[in-house]
Simulated assay, not measured.
Amino acid sequence: MKFIHQREQLNEGDLVVIVGWLSDRTGLRAAMFLVYGCVVMAALIFVIQPSGYWPLVAAVLFSTAFYPIFGLIPAYVSKVASSSAIAVSIFLVSLM
Rank of each mutant, 00 (worst) to 15 (best):
T26E: 15
F66H: 07
G71M: 08
L56D: 14
S63M: 14
V19S: 04
L56S: 11
F66I: 01
V93P: 00
M41N: 09
F46Q: 09
K2D: 10
G20Y: 02
R7D: 13
V57Y: 12
V93A: 12
A75D: 13
T64F: 04
I48G: 01
R25K: 15
V17I: 03
F70C: 10
S78I: 01
F66D: 00
A31K: 02
S94Y: 06
F91T: 11
V77R: 08
P50S: 09
L92K: 05
S89D: 08
Y76E: 12
Y36V: 02
L28C: 03
T26Q: 14
L44D: 06
V80G: 01
Q6V: 04
H5T: 05
A30Y: 07
V17W: 06
S94V: 07
M41K: 11
F62C: 08
G71H: 11
A58C: 07
G71V: 07
I69E: 12
R29N: 07
M96N: 09
V88W: 04
I18Q: 09
I4N: 03
L61W: 03
I90P: 00
V60K: 07
A42Q: 05
Y76L: 13
V40Y: 06
P68S: 02
A85W: 12
L92G: 11
F33G: 11
E12S: 08
P74K: 06
I86H: 03
V17D: 09
V93Y: 04
V77E: 05
I18P: 00
M41P: 00
S78L: 06
V40N: 00
I90M: 13
F91K: 10
A81M: 06
R25T: 14
Q6S: 09
L28N: 09
L95P: 00
L44I: 10
I48T: 08
I4G: 00
S63F: 11
G52T: 05
S23C: 07
G27C: 03
S94C: 05
W54G: 01
L34I: 12
V60Y: 12
P55H: 13
Y67H: 08
